[in-house]
Simulated scan of single mutants.
Amino acid sequence: MKKSMTLIAILVSIFSLTLTSCSSDDDNTNSSPEVETGSYKIYLDGALFLEGTNAQVGLIKDNQGNYVNTVTIGTGTEVVIVLSGFPTTIGEISTMVYDGDPGVNILTEQNLYDTRSGTLTRTSASKISFDGTCTDWPNLQSYSITGYIESEAWKVIN
């Protein structure tokens, strides 16, 4: 339980950092994305689990001001999805590993879903697909997970 609470705290911190780094003071740079919305569709064990459009997208910059390949997407406080370590080249594949980086982490009002294995694929400049397994915290139930997250904002990440 301690591990899941720590992971939830990390995810909330990342989401807070992301919202802060996308504030209006960053809008003066030429590299800011024009579109800060996106869509996602996620399936657990083949059944539609989450779907959203016009979700808020958060991008994170490193110390040099470059966008990194970690993004958040969510609909208010109901759903927050953190996608980290995804490929930056179209057609490239990253392997998701046990520690969640690269990986997909989903925080809903009730639970945290953390990927354990699988792949992330950059299918286009604006779309990242994933396929693998995840664990539901705190219930510790395993699921197959597939889906995609899409946004024009990803185009600034290369």
Rank of each mutant, 00 (worst) to 15 (best):
Q110N: 10
S129D: 09
Y148T: 04
T146P: 13
V104K: 00
T123M: 01
I157M: 05
I128F: 06
D99Y: 13
W154E: 00
N105M: 14
D136E: 15
G132Y: 05
G118F: 07
S144E: 12
D131H: 14
S151F: 00
T121Y: 10
T133D: 11
R122W: 00
T135H: 04
Y148V: 04
F130C: 09
T133H: 11
T133Y: 07
L140C: 04
S151P: 05
A153L: 03
T146L: 14
V104T: 00
S124M: 02
T146D: 15
D99T: 10
F130T: 03
R116A: 06
S124V: 01
P102T: 02
G132R: 08
S117N: 13
I128P: 01
T146I: 11
S129G: 07
N139T: 08
S126D: 11
C134D: 07
C134F: 06
T135R: 14
Y98G: 08
G100Q: 05
Y98V: 01
R122T: 01
A153D: 03
D136M: 14
T121R: 12
Y148H: 12
G100R: 06
D136W: 02
S124H: 02
W154R: 04
E150D: 09
I149A: 12
T123L: 03
Y143G: 06
K155L: 12
L112I: 09
C134N: 11
R116D: 01
S117D: 13
S129E: 13
A153G: 12
L112G: 08
K127H: 04
S142F: 13
P102N: 03
N111H: 14
S151H: 07
G118K: 05
T119F: 09
D131W: 02
I149K: 09
K127G: 03
E150F: 01
Y98E: 09
T133K: 12
E152M: 08
S144D: 15
G147M: 10
T123S: 14
P138A: 15
P102I: 00
P138L: 15
V104I: 11
Q141F: 08
V156C: 05
Y113Q: 06
P102H: 01
L107H: 05
Y113F: 14
D114N: 13
A125K: 09
L107E: 01
D101Y: 13
T135M: 15
T119G: 09
E109Q: 05
E150T: 00
I149P: 02
L120S: 08
D101I: 10
T108D: 06
T119K: 12
E152P: 00
N105V: 11
G147A: 10
K155G: 08
G103D: 02
E152F: 00
Y148E: 10
K155R: 11
S126L: 03
D136C: 15
Q110T: 00
S129P: 00
I157P: 04
T121C: 08
A125H: 03
F130N: 10
L112Y: 02
P102C: 03
I128R: 07
I128M: 07
Q110V: 01
E150M: 03
T108I: 06
E152S: 13
V104F: 04
R122D: 02
G118E: 02
R122Q: 05
T115L: 03
Y148K: 06
E152Q: 15
K127N: 09
S142P: 04
